[in-house]
Nucleic acid binder design. Structure first.
Lengths: 308, 308
DNA sequence: TTCTTCCATACGCTCATCGTATAGCGTGAC
DNA sequence: GTCACGCTATACGATGAGCGTATGGAAGAA
């Protein structure tokens, strides 16, 4: 295998090439790879020089793979995946042995639902160390190096090794301070989540729509954690996912406003992502989370407005 | 796949690790990889740091793979082989399109049998460019990036896509000048090939054995080309493979001496190593080589001593 | 035409990585 | 015991591979 080092000055060009092949252009690959465009160009050129064939046809619209390039691309994808998969397996085993459990959840869920329960969690699972993989916006696929993930899906979607966590319910919420103040001013400040359409407020409440009244304000956030923090600070009214805000509502740090809660018909589920044989501890933790959420929902019964 | 570049500062440690795993010790790997031992140590340590597990157990007798190390080793071997195989395939196709045919033969065969026929070869195959992969000593396996190889094997060994080239015949030879001189001096200078046992001369000739007569000399060479050059220069008597020396014997630049030729029972065969579908041009070239060798053998008939 | 977007090349600079030197350590011979 | 001989790890100074910035040319798009 040292043939590689003898023939190729570095292996980086292989990865850069792979990225460029996937991106369709050197410029795009540069962004994806966090290097400059000339660096991509040089890396690919070097690989072509060392192998002795053209891998791309340069067009003014981008770079297109040649036949040889396509072959090499597949080989690299396959070969590197083999290695990467094994590394993840090794890491998973290491985590398993160290009692580490990885969760893939939203930052806001951790900040406002999980964090206040960490002490209780540690009491229930003294040997478990949690590792949070925070996801920024909406979720795409399941990461492959995580044990347990919270994902939102249609209620009909079932999956092996998963548990119903909580139905997806959203409702307008604000801090008690803001709730008191808004009665006197009559104006509203909306804290809007970028992922939502602006007309979502129509369905969700009988609040006046943003922009409908002179003096209404609408701030927009693309990070739900920050948005919620603003709501807690009394900056305005936010749409709150029950899965995130249940504890805040119970602690009266947020209060429902507008008299409605909307059940989207989708559900949050806990999914056991473990590739190999299922770990008992993962199921135990999932059960524990489900129980806590059940307690929340029961306690919220008297507080919540009727769901629509 | 850019995950690789994000997590690992360089891919070299993977190759160094693979080499160390195969070598069994960092020092040995350093030699095989042509880098210093501390560099191996650093590379492996870095990989261990980046993956987060120990890959070797350091012993004073060397370094032994841990379980994780063994897993990773297999993955790297497999993954890199995938890539390397594809690269060779691409290169082979490139050679094919460019009319390049690769031969794996001994340096002495090229120097003394093939080279004098290159003009004739080009006349017969004007579009073919030859690429010689010279092998130093005895042959191990077949290289996988070559079209045609000359290999010595038992006469019974048959192989798909191969042609009988010439029986393995060895006979003592010397330059005409040396042949004339030795009659007067009575002493002998032996040009011995390191790969041979010294007593090979017993079987091969009725020459006086090296060391048996006062004044006899025995020089030893581990490169057959150089040994043959020395024989051509009149430096002594050498054991000549007919497959290499036939042209030299025909041109009277070497003459048989000792009155015997030894047929080992083995044969040189031409083997089509092409991995994919057989190339017609390869078979044509093999045929051409066989014909030339046949002509040699026929013309040598009156010159050669009886074979034993 | 002009504008935009793409890739290739030139040019310094910097930092990752190398080799040398050396220390530490375990093992086996005597 | 202790000496010698492997092995690997660490320190340190030097260097060159590879980076980013700046720029040029070519090809579509407006």
């Amino acid at each position: 295998m040292e043939e590689f080092s003898q023939r190729f000055s570095s292996l980086k060009p292989f990865l850069v090439f792979e990225c460029a092949a996937r991106s369709g252009s050197f410029s795009a690959a540069a962004k994806a790879f966090n290097i400059s465009q000339p660096s991509v160009s040089r890396n690919v050129a070097q690989l072509e020089r060392e192998i002795g064939v053209a891998l791309f046809e340069r067009r003014s619209t981008g770079a297109e793979l040649t036949d040889a390039g396509r072959e090499l691309f597949h080989a690299i994808t396959q070969g590197m995946s083999t290695i990467l998969r094994t590394i993840k397996q090794i890491e998973r085993r290491r985590h398993e042995e160290a009692g580490v459990v990885s969760l893939s959840v939203s930052g806001s869920f951790v900040a406002h639902w999980m964090a206040p329960r960490l002490a209780a969690f540690t009491q229930a699972f003294p040997d478990v160390r949690l590792r949070f993989h925070l996801i920024s916006g909406m979720v795409r696929g399941l990461p492959d190096d995580v044990d347990l993930a919270v994902r939102t899906m249609d209620a009909s979607d079932q999956d092996v090794r998963s548990w119903d966590f909580v139905p997806e319910i959203v409702l307008p919420v604000c801090s008690p301070g803001y709730a008191a103040a808004r009665k006197s001013t009559g104006n509203e400040t909306f804290l809007h989540f970028s992922d939502h359409a602006h007309d979502i407020w129509n369905d969700m409440s009988d609040l006046c729509l943003p922009g409908q009244l002179e003096g209404d304000v609408c701030h927009e956030f693309d990070d739900y954690s920050v948005l919620l923090q603003a709501a807690l600070d009394g900056s305005g009214v936010a749409l709150g996912w029950l899965s995130v805000t249940s504890k805040l509502l119970l602690d009266r740090r947020l209060v429902p406003v507008g008299g409605r809660a909307h059940r989207t018909g989708r559900v949050h589920r806990l999914i056991d992502c473990g590739a190999g044989p299922s770990r008992d501890i993962v199921a135990d933790i999932a059960q524990w989370l489900v129980e806590r959420m059940k307690e929340d929902l029961a306690a919220l019964e008297p507080i919540l407005p009727a769901t629509t």
